[in-house]
Design a binder for these strands. Structure first.
Lengths: 196, 196
DNA sequence: CACTGCGAGTAGACACTGTCTACGGTGATC
DNA sequence: GATCACCGTAGACAGTGTCTACTCGCAGTG
């Protein structure tokens, strides 16, 4: 009964997370989520005035998981006294791993048409992580007075890799090593050759 | 009457293009497209067995326009005897311009959930362009034995920039110059500093 | 204890969607 | 001129998100 006696709001979000994980974004109908949570289709309205706000709450959880994952990966690397380049590499790999491990959630998180209205708030939640990212890139490129642009370009590269992989567009560029060579090329391009 | 007497198949695709351009992907309902084309909601079924196949035809047109745009930009640059680096820059800028000028179509083209089944065929249509891209990168990096990975990484970077811009995520990294600094950072990272 | 009032969830209606099927009606062929 | 294939219409069907009664249980108060 641990599931049942939580308040409905949390149960609905949990049901959405289950559904998007198991079935994908297309399964996130309002009535479908309500069914999974064991309530009638009108019940969610008491907590989420519209379907999109419920989806935004699910996506919010996804952003939380993403930042937790990345922060964990960075803390692990930083704890071993790794240099900035290695820490960035750990972050990049964690980002791609998250997208690959949670394709449905990752897709939802960047479906701005489903998240309209809550988009800016969700984006804002990733800001602190982006700032540490900027700091690491700044450590690596001290000659640049503002590493924000370089960091954003690197992040866009990672995001594009994640997105195109789920679309299957990288099939002809990825061999048996999967996306590793592309990640390597990306990191080398933006950060210089790997430290040996 | 030039619109009316074309066969319905082409008129439906044209209506879809209009709708996605004017209103966005959300306006691409089957019945909405049929209304715009001036026929009943059952008519499309004669030519497109399912809604998704109609959307795939619309996206196919988008891919055609994209390859045309890029090929035109490259031919223009190549005609003036530009070096590979300049040609790549022209292609990259054309890609971002296309995404910015046709946000709805660009979104549709990479909505794999709407295009399921036709995805591989659509991807294949961009292959020749990708090959010329690979050739240009190869000219620029003769030391690499296979520039495919480097090209794919660069393309993923451009795609990520286009995608994140439409999502608004680059607002804090883009100043008054728009996306130009990020494009510059991307090209510098992947191709080396700009030729002077 | 009886009563009231409110909040949570139910259930049905509404307009809309994509798919399916039966039906007209028009034009080409024999 | 009759036949027939094909194109588009129109309605049914299950499903959706939203909106609106309504019911029921349980708190607080007399």
């Amino acid at each position: 009964m641990t599931e049942q006696d939580r308040d409905l709001r949390a149960r609905l979000v949990a049901a959405g997370i289950e559904l998007v994980t198991e079935e994908g974004v297309h399964a996130l109908g309002l009535r479908e989520i309500a069914r999974r949570a064991g309530v009638s289709h009108g019940a969610p309205r008491r907590y989420f005035p519209t379907h999109r706000e419920l989806l935004a709450a699910v996506a919010r959880h996804g952003f939380g998981r993403l930042t937790d994952t990345l922060a964990g990966a960075d803390a692990l690397a930083a704890g071993t006294g790794a240099d900035p380049r290695t820490r960035i590499e750990a972050l990049a790999r964690a980002y791609l791993c998250f997208a690959a491990a949670n394709p449905g959630m990752f897709e939802l998180m960047f479906r701005h048409d489903l998240l309209e209205g809550s988009g800016t708030e969700l984006r804002r939640s990733t800001l602190p992580l982006f700032r540490t990212f900027v700091g690491l890139v700044g450590e690596l490129h001290p000659q640049d007075e503002d590493p924000t642009a370089a960091t954003a370009a690197l992040w866009a590269n990672l995001h594009g890799l994640a997105q195109l992989r789920t679309w299957g567009s990288l099939a002809l560029a990825t061999g048996s090593d999967g996306i590793e060579p592309l990640l390597g090329a990306t990191l080398t391009a933006h950060l210089g050759p790997a430290t040996r």
